[in-house]
Amino acid sequence: MTATVTLGRIAGIRVGVHWSVLGIVAILAGLGIARWPDAIPGQPTAAYVVAALAGAALFLASLLAHELAHALVARRHGIPVDGITLWLLGGVARLRGEASTPAAEFRIAAVGPLASVVVAAVCGVLAWVSVLVALPPLVFAVLAFLSLINVVLALFNLVPAAPLDGGRILRSLLWAWRGDRYRAAVASARAGKVFGLALIALGGVWLLAAAGANGIWWILIGLFIVLVASVEEHQARTFAALSGLRVRDAMTPNPERVDGATSLAAFVDDLAPTRKHSAYPVVDPTGRPLGLMTLDRVGSVRRERWPSTPLDAVAHAMTAVPTVGPDDELAEVLPRLQDGRTDGRGLVVEGGGLVGIITPSDISRIATLRGLSRSKSAGLFTGRGAGWP
């Protein structure tokens, strides 16, 4: 989830909002404006509007506290954090990596609901104080609302189903118990799909019973959970298939490379048409890698400038290209490859020299072959088919 607007940084972590966050503001503000005049009559219309907007804004702040807790603990465990984005269905802390131990996984997951509980407690105390010092009743209403909704947020996130925090906690416990993080991830993702389908069914029943439009909200949340859980299950199976493999097992060794001084015109007219690849390592005369040239980069330069533009000025620079070693664990470097700007491609470097290139098709091919091999072994020795675990 990419932020539409960047708000700034907190503790060095980039914070932004996606345009869909306006949906949360509209829903919460609308509920406040519609219901608070009945619950607390006699206030000016402007007061209800201000209180409703303040409640919505403070709820977003509590979502930010939840995600910031995840990000800070993840960073303490050595996991880089790209940023936090608030959007329609809550917030996302974008972590660039996975926890290295079940204990770290547990702490990163559990701190989010804990932060929501702390926010709920603080708001509850402030609501009580607002009554003691005789503040306007709408102040109490906003604080009590924030306390309640953060308790709900914490409880909902503790449901043991991916991608919720409870699913991460379940994954960490299964990982610690069974010693296999990927089997644990599959189990957590399956629980997520079941929970998501249950929410969709609940929303459907709600709509059919004409109990209001809230059913649509539950259906949307359920669809999101099913979608993300399905993606996580697929990723876990892929990681399991790659477990124990090295980059050298999947890479294309000694890839075709192009001289960085070659003009873009020569590349387009003479080199690219005669070769079948869509990406080429760019090197200097000594063979040192300078970047990665992909065909989609051609369109970034006007045609009349092709003859005078060298490839090393157009290609993805090395700072934007994931680089890995041939003996790196394939499953461990996969997140780095996916987080790059080169559509999953990476250069394999050893001793400063280019020894290979690794692409999504390389990984997909070896994962498929590994999966077929494991399925065959399971059928031969356990009497089971390809179902796993």
Rank of each mutant, 00 (worst) to 15 (best):
L337M: 06
A241E: 08
G215D: 10
F140M: 14
L199T: 05
G344W: 04
T85N: 00
N254W: 13
S100K: 13
A57Y: 01
V247P: 04
V50G: 05
L53R: 03
R190W: 12
A39C: 12
P310E: 05
L208R: 08
D362Y: 02
V139F: 11
I225K: 00
T323L: 11
I366C: 05
R288H: 12
H70Y: 07
L86S: 03
R35T: 12
A104E: 07
L174H: 01
G8P: 02
R246F: 15
A71E: 03
T2W: 14
S243M: 12
A315D: 04
A378M: 09
I108S: 05
I357M: 09
R183C: 11
V268E: 00
A320T: 11
N157D: 08
L143C: 02
T85Y: 00
L28M: 10
V228R: 06
H234Q: 15
M251C: 06
R288I: 15
G42I: 03
D180N: 08
E304Y: 14
E350V: 10
S20I: 06
D269V: 13
R288S: 13
A241C: 05
G55Y: 01
R374H: 12
V131I: 13
D339Q: 14
G97A: 04
D343T: 14
L311Y: 00
V25T: 06
T342A: 00
R302E: 12
R14K: 10
V125D: 10
L68T: 10
L380N: 09
V119N: 11
V118T: 11
V133M: 07
G340Y: 03
